[in-house]
Simulated scan of single mutants.
Amino acid sequence: MKIVITGGAGFIGSNLARALTRHPKVGEVHIIDNLATGYKDNLTDLPAHFYEGDVQDPGLLDEALSGADAVVHLAALPSVPRSLKDPLATHHANATGTLQVLEAARRAGNLHVIAASSSSVYGATPNLPKHENLPSAPLSPYAVSKLATEAYLGSYHHSFGLPVLPFRFFNVYGPGQRADHPYAAVIPKWISAALAGRPVPLHGDGAQTRDFTYVGTVCDVLVDAALRRVTSFRPMNLAFGTRVSLRELLAEIEIATGCRTTAHHLAPRAGDVRHSQASSERLRTAFPNVGCVPLREGVQVTAEWLRGTGR
């Protein structure tokens, strides 16, 4: 099989590339990344073909997708705060970028397209756990751009018969997720602060909850989906129904790092969802053998990686 990963030099993409290149059924892995948020050194020693460029470039997409069996579309501008600062850039990268990938998949012979959406599409919907039949209520331009990603996949399935699978990711974390950029995710940012003896930046009261999902599990599901050609025009949560408050997360980080922390309290962030927890029923039906890595184990591995890299 030949599998193309857009955004393959990023955190999730590079972990997925490693998983795919180790799989005996995968012959070629091709990666597209404009390095806006990814890093080429994430791909060091990987036997994968790298295209430096943007998914909004049709010619580049046609070259990369030629002869492919599947595309895992992860390329995006992440971060709610980033989308509040520059909504148009987020829309172009996430919504228009997805549309270009779908068009290229059609030109290449109706390739299987697996794409990353986000739990942020649930937004202000109060129900817990979040199941896929709930109405969406996005609170940020980022969430809207991910809702557009899902809608485009569904429309291309219905309009053109394209085999698709949109996943809603929930707070993915793990090795490879860097802390050294302005929009770093909470787990690497807090681990890095703890290891350096700095106060941990805590927005709000810390009682907000998240369904943290280990990147290795996410990659296991993505690999299985590509190899078995799992399709669904309906979005699917990729998380396991855990519900951890930020205060509880901070306690786990102290255990993993062996460092006591102090919180630097900040105002709640605009566009942030108060509580997030996935229903995993649809995921477990489609992927009955998938397992969930406990948060303590995942945070420990992540802390070891950050301790070793200093990133």
Rank of each mutant, 00 (worst) to 15 (best):
P87G: 13
L20Y: 03
I191Q: 03
R274T: 12
C259H: 09
G27M: 15
I32K: 15
G216H: 14
A104Q: 07
S14D: 06
H49N: 02
Y39E: 11
E103A: 02
T242W: 03
V273T: 11
T213E: 06
T149P: 01
A75D: 01
T209E: 03
H91R: 10
L111K: 06
H181Q: 01
R296I: 10
G298T: 06
Y214V: 13
C259W: 06
S280H: 14
P135S: 13
H265I: 05
A75P: 00
Y183L: 04
L111S: 14
Q208H: 15
A105W: 02
C219D: 05
V230I: 13
T90K: 00
G8M: 06
G27L: 15
G97R: 01
R168T: 02
L139I: 14
S14T: 11
H30P: 00
S159W: 03
G97Y: 05
A48F: 12
D180V: 03
N94V: 04
S245W: 10
A286R: 15
R107L: 02
I187C: 01
P201Y: 13
F287T: 01
A70D: 10
V26A: 07
T96V: 15
G271L: 07
T262V: 05
A151F: 01
S279H: 12
H73T: 07
A19I: 12
R106L: 08
T90F: 00
H73N: 13
A143V: 05
G310I: 03
K85S: 11
E281Y: 04
L111N: 09
T125V: 15
H91W: 14
L266P: 03
S120W: 08
R269V: 15
H203S: 09
G38W: 14
F233I: 06
A225Q: 11
G197Y: 12
A17C: 09
